[in-house]
Design a protein around this nucleic acid. Structure first.
Lengths: 226, 226
DNA sequence: AAGAAAACTGGACCCCGGTCCGTTTGGGAT
DNA sequence: ATCCCAAACGGACCGGGGTCCAGTTTTCTT
């Protein structure tokens, strides 16, 4: 049970939360109630809330994560939950932060082929596959956290993925409109799509993986390796 | 004011509403309260509701379309709205049905390059552009109707677009996994993405259009014509 | 024409997300 | 140790989506 959020707090005191930019810093073992500067009681309650939410998901699924239920289970008032996480989506996102950040530092500073060192095309292939498998095991939460369509693309985690993809593409296709191509690529990895294909169309993950490689090949014009 | 829905009714008496498959039949002038078999009063109320919803959107934007408000404005009870459209999304979708169906028959039976007759690649290019522009002018409604991520890809209109795209792709790339490639392509046309790029990133529609053509070129391996 | 089944209606009701605001508390300054 | 106020708290409150069901209307049957 080691949640540990950051780059989620959005509302009250911090005008722009700002993700921790670069430094990995995710080697904490138990859980890190960091949060730049939170009053002691606030930090304590935050931890309680995340724990309560985790428990509720385990017991009743994502649908059971009701703001009031979480508040009650954590022994705090409803207002506190909203103050801390902004809204339900914010809470859900906070639950996902840990793994999102891990993925992020994997492709920013981890070992090749995901991390730096491998050729850009290989990194791109590895990225898609990594995302695919990570998403596949958190589908419910990801879907639930995706409610508002307007926010989808503006969320820090989404932007990070997009920026990284665009960066890799730029190394391969310096003259293309890599912004847009990157959107296309990450679009293929959209949780809702993964859900549709695997759960509603019964496609095996391997096929999605092959599809990703094919897509990368076509878009970059690379050799159809692998 | 010529809404006219079909392929929306979902709930009570009709097990599988089924879209009218092929025949164009959208040349009605005023409005068509068709609906396979609806009791007279029900059809009347349905028309009233759609009109009321349209009016509310004009006056207060999509956000003003409250189930209760629509009901009141139409002079019916709240329960009636839900019985007819299932939920808010259903109502919004019904509002979009008219133009969705028009687009559909344009690419199924309209003049080339969108309709049959032109080479598949040209049809594909034309399709993306048509969708892009159509979406661009209904963004608010489309976004509002997109709430539930699970339903996005299973909706009839979405499936139709996807199937058609896959069909065109199959004519161009008989040996590829056209199902998945089609998902990628229509993903590029997702309203939420269009919204993000045009409204939040301030990209002109022309750039998205160019992006689409580039994408088609890369995916199909066609000559970068146009 | 009459009777009955099927379909439709409307509004009371419940639940949940989100807001508001009067009260409490942590922790730096003196 | 004390003061003080920004920050945090909590729960009453609101509005909107969705459900339910008793009552009404339409349409079918004979």
């Amino acid at each position: 049970m080691l949640y540990a959020g950051f780059m989620s707090e959005t509302l009250p005191p911090l005008p722009t939360p700002q993700e921790p930019s670069d430094k990995p810093r995710l080697l904490e073992v138990g859980f890190a109630p960091d949060e730049p500067c939170l009053r002691a009681d606030a930090a304590r309650n935050r931890a309680r809330l995340l724990e309560a939410a985790t428990r509720l998901i385990a017991e009743h699924g994502v649908a059971g994560v009701t703001m009031e239920a979480v508040a009650t289970a954590a022994g705090v008032g409803k207002g506190t939950v909203f103050r801390r996480f902004g809204d339900r989506t914010g809470l859900l996102l906070a639950l996902l932060d840990h793994s999102a950040h891990r993925l992020q530092s994997d492709f920013l500073a981890g070992p090749p082929p995901l991390g730096p060192g491998a050729p850009p095309v290989d990194r791109l292939r590895a990225l898609g596959v990594a995302v695919l498998y990570r998403y596949a095991e958190q589908l419910d939460l990801l879907l639930a956290a995706q409610s508002e369509p307007t926010r989808r693309h503006s969320h820090p985690a989404a932007r990070a993925l997009h920026m990284h993809t665009a960066m890799l593409l730029r190394q391969i296709l310096p003259d293309a409109d890599c912004e847009l191509l990157a959107q296309t690529l990450v679009g293929y990895l959209d949780p809702a799509l993964v859900h549709h294909l695997t759960r509603q169309c019964d496609m095996p993950l391997e096929r999605l993986e092959a599809g990703w490689n094919d897509l990368v090949t076509r878009v970059t014009g690379a050799d159809p390796q692998r």
